[in-house]
Design a protein around this nucleic acid. Sequence first.
DNA 1: CAGCATGATGTAAACGTTTACATGCGGGCA
DNA 2: TGCCCGCATGTAAACGTTTACATCATGCTG
Lengths: 339, 339
Amino acid sequence: MSVTIKDVARAAGVSVASVSRALNGHENVTGETRKRIEDAASRLRYMPNGAARSLITQRTQTIGAVLPDLHGEFFSELIRGMDSAARARGLHLLVSSSHGSASEVGDVLRTLRGRVDGVLIMSPHADADMLATNLPAALPTVLMNTRVPGGKYLSLSIDNYGGAYTMTQHLVRHGYRRIAFIGGPANNFDADERLRGYRDALAKLLPKQHALVLPGDFSEESGYRTGLALRDLTERPDAVFAANDMMAIGCLFALSELGLKVPDDIALAGFDDIPIARFVSPPLTTMRVRIADMGSQALQRLAEAIDGSTQPRLAHEIGCSLVVRQSSGTHAEPHTDTS
Amino acid sequence: MSVTIKDVARAAGVSVASVSRALNGHENVTGETRKRIEDAASRLRYMPNGAARSLITQRTQTIGAVLPDLHGEFFSELIRGMDSAARARGLHLLVSSSHGSASEVGDVLRTLRGRVDGVLIMSPHADADMLATNLPAALPTVLMNTRVPGGKYLSLSIDNYGGAYTMTQHLVRHGYRRIAFIGGPANNFDADERLRGYRDALAKLLPKQHALVLPGDFSEESGYRTGLALRDLTERPDAVFAANDMMAIGCLFALSELGLKVPDDIALAGFDDIPIARFVSPPLTTMRVRIADMGSQALQRLAEAIDGSTQPRLAHEIGCSLVVRQSSGTHAEPHTDTS
DNA sequence: CAGCATGATGTAAACGTTTACATGCGGGCA
DNA sequence: TGCCCGCATGTAAACGTTTACATCATGCTG
């Protein structure tokens, strides 16, 4: 077994209590003793056992992150944001991803009991019931991009609504009138909010035009199919706003197969600003979402909730910024931040 | 405080020992008692406290993953692979990323003491000294894409050498003769191995040609600069093999600015098969690396080392597959796997 | 019917910390 | 000089488990 606090105490010729006090920076220990203890500790390469400490302090210094089946940049950025905020506070990050159903999330939540001081949850499948039954009563929780009615939990979301509103407004301002929207999967929080932003902007800015919502599921494939289907519409839209970049890119390929020029024949916009967006041709106009910010802010709010230091606002949103590229045919203008 | 084993014992009218035995599936408990205990446990929503259990069993059921500052798909896939393998074995994953120096890695390694049963380390900065001083003596460890001489640690790498060899071979077979290589950052394991593969293949297959290694650091920007610099070469290469896709893409943009057609004037190949690779024009020929595989295999080997079940081979490599697209001007052929 | 083996259950120690409380020492004040 | 106060240090309990060992009942054997 490795070196424990007792070994250090013996080496320094003091009691374990003094070692604990000295190493945790308590005041009531003389400089001389403290030094002897610190010397002994570093000589023996002593590191306190986390489990033992957690057991008595009821703190694990660990945050659990329960995430859905995420890919690419989104996932990376999210973890990067959470990790940097965690490290800044001396917290560890326990990651559990790829959850496809509410019951899987529930399982994980239960196994987290006693291992974490709080959890960050992102899940399209989360619902109030599942959380109530599987979340240890007093465990601080922050929901990310996850809608659970009842206002019981702290939450943090991308400003999907504002972003979609801004994008629609941008297209309207540049003269587009028949703006179609390619939606996301059913019951998806992001997708629903983006659709709502599109609808509201349209209703407000072009009350005469009715919304044109085309089917999609966030996949490139679905964007492609929908793009091809544009051929058969009697009145073709002059702009297409896809609920995410992958669909916009799929749509772009479809349009080029149909011989339609973007943006001359039809403008195109996406949402997310994935790295590929600037590499397609023409480069894609889109909304940039600061995912790492969401991760780090979520962690920060969770940490505050754990400390009980401040009573943070229940819900908060992370702004997006409009990134204008050539696919929308609108001349360059500075990025616009929402929220 | 939440419900403990004592509460369950009281509710079921038995001792804590019986509860522990029943819930851990030991044999010596009658069906009747077991049932009573299980009922009480689920009625009270009892979940054992991980810290307490770890303290006594000396097992945390947790794996630490110490990673460098990673981005995009690579990072996502790696974690995905580790996470799925971990979950399959009932293990948790403690992630700590974005380490920029050996001392940072050392710090993290020390704070992991008593929190994990083993660690997965990927770090360009890792060296034998740092590991020796910061790694608790008997902590099972698997190194990923990290070269530490001495053969003390289990390790797992992408077959960078084989992949680069294969790619070079592919270009040679299709008639290219002056094949330049854009290198990666200094002291980078992946970059060095890829360079070595390129050199060896060239020496073997085209002994008359000498290698032409151009500077790069894995960034798109550096690929772009190097691409522009091709203009000034007296004898222009007929193919460029970049040590990663981002540089290949940067180079592609530079070439198009120079008015050079890919692949007609000059062929281009990359390494990694990042998602963008198929979206640039022309789509990029590259080596696909199965990163998720590396993550899950690393975790699996670590788990075996922890169990002591098998004595796994010290080093192992994950193969790559050649993905031929239009940028190399070579007609389509089936994917070729290395290793 | 007595004694013993077997197997279920209980008791208590142990894991490595932190911390409330006890102890004892030195110095300041009367 | 004697007392008390404050402060450094030590002692031991507590955290929630697992598990070696003790105990006890039961049924079988001789």
